[in-house]
């Protein structure tokens, strides 16, 4: 009886553990991607402070085991870093003193 119970438990628990492992990996991947995107924005002198906070929050949340939330935060950070980079690239091409400040 005991053996059957153990087998049943294993059958149900193993996929759950797999899901946990997957979400942990996904969160870590998303955090790494956000960090890489942030680095790109920084290289253009265009990083945003809020992105850094989001990445830190994502890391803390992942460490606590809430991988779903960590994934969401890291995804948001990555998106934000993309916006920062786009802003910096745009500014590199189109920055200009305002008309009243031109000789």
């Amino acid at each position: 009886m005991k053996k059957r119970c153990l087998a049943c438990l294993l059958v149900f628990m193993l996929p759950a553990a797999g899901i946990c492992a997957d979400s942990a990996t996904d969160a870590q991947k998303a955090i790494a991607a956000a960090k890489a995107a942030q680095k790109e924005a920084d290289a253009l002198q265009g990083g945003w402070r809020s992105t850094e906070s989001l990445i830190k929050k994502a890391e803390k949340t992942a460490a606590k085991g809430d991988h779903r939330k960590a994934l969401a935060l890291a995804t948001k950070a990555r998106r934000e870093a993309g916006l920062a980079r786009a802003q910096a690239e745009h500014e590199r091409q189109h920055w200009s003193p305002p008309p009243y400040a031109q000789p």
Binding site: Q45, L83, E91, W95
Partner: peptide, 21 residues
């Protein structure tokens, strides 16, 4: 000069927004 007149951050501010206009 470029850095001074470049918009930065999520609010898109450059130095001149506050200290010129």
């Amino acid at each position: 000069k470029r850095i001074y007149f470049t918009r930065r951050g999520p609010r898109g501010f450059a130095c001149y927004h506050c200290h010129w206009e």
